[in-house]
Amino acid sequence: MNIKRDISTTTLSSFTLSAFFVLTVLSILLQNIPQKLFSAGDSLLKLNSDQGVANAVTTVVVYFRGFDTLGEIAVLFIASFGIGLMLTSQTHGDKNKVKSNFMLQLGARLLFPIIILFGVYVMTFGHLSVGGGFQGGVIIASAVLLMFVSSNHFHLSHRVVEVLETFAGISYVMIGLIGLIVVDSFLGNFLPHNISQLGLLLSGGIVPIIYIIIGIKVGSEMSLIVQNMLQRSDND
């Protein structure tokens, strides 16, 4: 590839200039960095026991960085919305529709509840063991994908998914606002979260509730993405 023909000289030189600028600023910043910045994570992890959550990663994701997680959920919603919007504007029929094998259909139908159960387990035990809402939601969406691949007649009710998604989004913000009123901080932990209940299923106050809400929202959005991607072509 001839670089000189494909990329203009101004672009190359401005890129080099900006890269040099970024490197200079970074080197100045890294030399004068305050020593306290490096221990930010440690001081947060020391506060972990206040929330009574066994999994420290969950405390960081849902409690200390709960607002960031709300933003991530919003980003996922916009991605799902964009995929739906982009794929509705195209109309083309599906020519190579293959009827799937009987064994595939039966196996998928057998596996479907087990995968759903595993996803719900990962979602509900996010504050005790490995996993959480994001992972559980995507596991549920992969079960939906399996059903879509194996069966031609499987269809997600748009109404149900919409209600689930709206409910999850509204209740996340509502819990945050209740925390703002009761504990004076957005997403404050207003439910009992005693350290003596560490390791129990009902522990950690609002943390497991928020993770289940995240799981519902991620699961419904990812399922909707899968449905839009796979079924749009043969619906219209």
Binding site: V122, G131, Q135, S142
Partner: peptide, 11 residues
Amino acid sequence: ALTEAVIGTGI
């Protein structure tokens, strides 16, 4: 690791 297995490799 679970996130990478589910999101990065899977869906």
